[in-house]
Design a protein around this nucleic acid. Structure first.
Lengths: 354, 354
DNA sequence: TTGAAAGCGCTAACAT
DNA sequence: ATGTTAGCGCTTTCAA
């Protein structure tokens, strides 16, 4: 008899006067006599039947859910990734489980291990930093994982990374080509993946342009608007002659712009500013920020696709771990180039490729 | 025998030489003889056992997953909600399923219905607009739903809303008190929930301040930076005498600021600008934007809590539908007030409560 | 204290 | 073409 709960194949079978197997078949598009077909469909729709996804998952071993774990969902870069990953997942019929690790290493490792609870079919992980423990956990991952970040060779999971070294070079070169010579660096924590790489790119570009590295022009703080403003103010006090500020992300750059404005400097005439990530913040600033697009959306999209490929039937795990890198793209706007970025034009034509 | 797959209670039982029931008991902290306890725990850890969450869900009827459905994950307002909801969910031991409806009404309705597949225990929905079909679907919702938005009375689901009418009033009043008289409105689509309410707030505030409503000072376009810039340019051309621009969100306000800058107007001296939502964009602008915080994070938090309360055992569905409203808060910054917002101070002290 | 067995809702052999 | 049944991994009566 139909008890209290939501309808199941049993309720339908009773109502249609057939077996549960017939119900299952009809509902899954396998053959049946027209009359049976009819009775089942009618009963199902009368009862408002919706298949129980949990039961189905238990049966066939997958959930059609993907997990995406990020350090901080508020960060525009990760937001761009979430957006793309969710789009790819949705298009492929997968749901997206969003997990915030709050930049906690232990939590990151936990997410990898929790793949074992079969809650999702695979994981896209953005680690804040990659430790030996990460390598270990990743190597023993109980399911498919794609890491967004720089993975050491030998770790048997797919990875997609940004090329922030080249990205930083792009920005610094652009600054140099615009005639800047005393280019400060406002970096984030250097013991994180992004911070480390961006610092290296800065030095490489200076070297390539024949400009000596000057430690006094370099600061490392937290990533954040306030940190950027304070660091820039300090830099300005120590080295009033600086003519450009390169920031490791747009938030820092926004802070730099504010500090510069507050100090009465004109941008870009007196001091140019460039950021990284090309987030929405870049066009919100005045003047609009020149920024390096590190392809966050693109990385998200690729990661999701790689994960889905691992999940596709047939193409099992035997494939070797793959690595891919998204190419950076410099987007020139008013903060470095006087004529750029007319108001009302969202997309900047001045963009040039790596 | 222990076959290929991941360890299950059966593998543990075999290895420990006990029944699966004992395994289950030990692992769930129910009593057992010390020796049994020991053998089971040892076997479990040797095997690296992790309980299968799907099986558990099937058994006890809930997934410990919540769904959050938003029109667009890129929007800073929704990002703020996601962040809070995920935090509340995580703290309560729930996972968060993030769904983007892409502002599609049909998709919104689909999400409500899909509660029936038992993939998640409850839903927080942000509808872009509330149609009769929404009311119908919500009334027949196959599980607990909390709506963030303005729900008609009588719809039997919990709701939390912003008070954008009061919010708009706060901003307009502030503008008037700063001596502005010709205050333009740059609104988003008026057939959406936010657009409609913000327009009403604007008119109400003008009326309260004894300033006549002037249709020529009002535009409605899309929500977006480019749209804001274009609308403001148009307004400026038609009414060069305007002395303030109130925008229905921060993105529009950013656009307005750009258009104003491009037209050579000084902010706030010649023209003041105020936005809404108090997103990260507000502090990225120059001058930093005065904005009305509509409590997006707060709404997310409350919605998540209400949902969790519905889910708590005991306090079943019988509770009547609840409605709650988050109080708006005006945050004054440089775009309306000359002295405000020194660089480097992330939090603005000038904030005053409703 | 412990084991046997039922059952959550579904799919897929297998038998008819 | 359709029904019976086993089984996915777990929890929980019910007996012993």
């Amino acid at each position: 008899m139909s008890s209290g709960g939501p309808p199941t194949i049993v309720s339908i079978a009773e109502r249609a006067g057939v077996s549960i197997a017939s119900v299952s078949r009809v509902l899954n598009g396998l053959g049946a006599r027209p009359e049976t077909e009819d009775r089942v469909r009618r009963a199902a729709s009368e009862l408002g039947y919706v298949p129980n996804a949990v039961a189905r998952s238990l049966k066939d071993g997958h959930t059609r859910q993907l997990t995406f774990a990020v350090p901080d969902i508020g960060n525009p870069v990760y937001v761009a990734m979430v957006r793309e990953i969710q789009a790819v997942a949705k298009a492929a019929g997968y749901r997206l489980l969003l997990h915030s690790t709050d930049a906690d290493v232990a939590d990151e490792l936990g997410v990898v291990r929790s793949l074992a609870d079969r809650t999702s079919d695979g994981l896209v992980l953005v680690p804040i930093r990659i430790t030996p423990a990460h390598v270990e956990a990743l190597t023993a991952a109980p399911g498919p994982v794609v890491v967004i970040g720089s993975l050491p060779d030998g770790v048997p999971v797919d990875g997609v990374q940004a090329d922030s070294v080249t990205g930083a070079e792009l920005a610094v070169r652009h600054l140099v080509e615009s005639g800047r010579r005393r280019i400060a660096l406002v970096n984030g924590p250097v013991d994180t993946v992004p911070g480390g790489n961006r610092g290296r790119g800065y030095r490489a570009a200076l070297a390539a342009c024949g400009i000596p590295y000057d430690p006094e022009l370099v600061t490392a703080t937290d990533f954040g608007v306030g940190a950027g403003a304070r660091a820039t103010a300090r830099l300005l006090a120590a080295r009033p002659d600086l003519d450009a500020v390169f920031c490791a992300n747009d938030q820092l750059a926004i802070g730099a712009v504010q500090a510069l404005h507050a100090a009465g400097r004109r941008i870009p005439r007196d001091t140019a500013v460039a950021g990284m990530d090309d987030s929405d913040l870049a066009v919100a600033a005045w003047p609009p920020l020149t920024s390096v697009d590190l392809g966050a959306g693109e990385r998200g999209r690729r990661a999701a696709r790689m994960l889905l490929e691992r999940l596709a039937p047939g193409s099992g795990e035997p494939l070797p771990a793959r690595r891919t890198t998204a190419a950076p793209r410099l987007v020139v706007r008013g903060s470095t180039s006087p004529g750029a970025a007319p108001a009302g034009s969202d997309e900047q034509e001045g963009a040039k490729s790596a």
